[in-house]
Design a protein around this nucleic acid. Sequence first.
DNA 1: GCTTTATAGTTGGTAGTAACAACTAAGGAC
DNA 2: GTCCTTAGTTGTTACTACCAACTATAAAGC
Lengths: 166, 166
Amino acid sequence: MSQATSTTTDPAVDRDAAALYEALSDLIRVYQFRDRDRICCHDISVTQCYALESLARRGPLTLNELAAELYLDKSTVSRVVNTIERKKLLRRRPHKQDRRAVQLEITSAGRRLQEVIRADIEERERRLIADFDPAARKALIDLVGRLAQAAKERVSTASGTCCSLD
Amino acid sequence: MSQATSTTTDPAVDRDAAALYEALSDLIRVYQFRDRDRICCHDISVTQCYALESLARRGPLTLNELAAELYLDKSTVSRVVNTIERKKLLRRRPHKQDRRAVQLEITSAGRRLQEVIRADIEERERRLIADFDPAARKALIDLVGRLAQAAKERVSTASGTCCSLD
DNA sequence: GCTTTATAGTTGGTAGTAACAACTAAGGAC
DNA sequence: GTCCTTAGTTGTTACTACCAACTATAAAGC
């Protein structure tokens, strides 16, 4: 964390930032497509799957918590939850302490489906990285993790309104 | 490229695949959000921005070519193009050789907007990686690039119907 | 050259995503 | 107990995304 967080003067960083931008937008585009394709054939959308995954990973959540987890507006999540609930993949339960809130719980069917999808995507992942040598794999996972973490921190601190910048 | 592409027996690969799955879905979720936030304040959506970016990078494309580039159905792209055209960020031109086809061309306003957004996102990218040492940055860019490439190849070969699975 | 057959793009229809704003109901402060 | 806040839902609007059906042009077959 140097003083030059606002605008780097190091040309190497600039170059790398541009390269990373390219590589990441490419990756994300392909991944989005692949996930769309992979997930939709289980009669569930990508967002719905993310929601299930969050519930599977984190246990029961309130609607607001889930919205925060997914970086979505609570109204959007409320509707997404409706759809998933209709498919009996999760349940709305009254919250123990707070009667305004709901507890969202994944059902066993939901968990099963989520497992299938996860296994499916992981299998693809496995094939992708099988060609990488172990050290490269480790580096990749580590770096992507750090990048995600860093991005997450930026988002939560800079959160709120659009274009508030920094 | 070993013989064991279908199901790896190497437990290290399995573990790494799971870890990568976690890290990448995290990253993609945050990035999608961030991009949504970043781009939408320029009165343009993420998909629209991808379309502009493709045209800026690759020059004039037909609608089908753009659809392939974005991994979207041509009907979707046709409508996305409508929206962007309405905003005068691109032009539909008759194709020279083929009167059925259209040439999609980014306008100078489109290019300017795309530049602003790219610079904006790159600035964020720069801050994210500024904390990484140069070697790690290089490794990250290289690995993400390879991953995107590998994913792209898989997608295009395994393409076609959903759940066709190799 | 004229009839298939294929391709490029648009439009219709449907479902879901996503935001903001307005609302209801419940909790907490005083 | 009124006032303010918070949890979720619903109304509204616009866009994303698919498949299927359509029009117009191009290319192949004969």
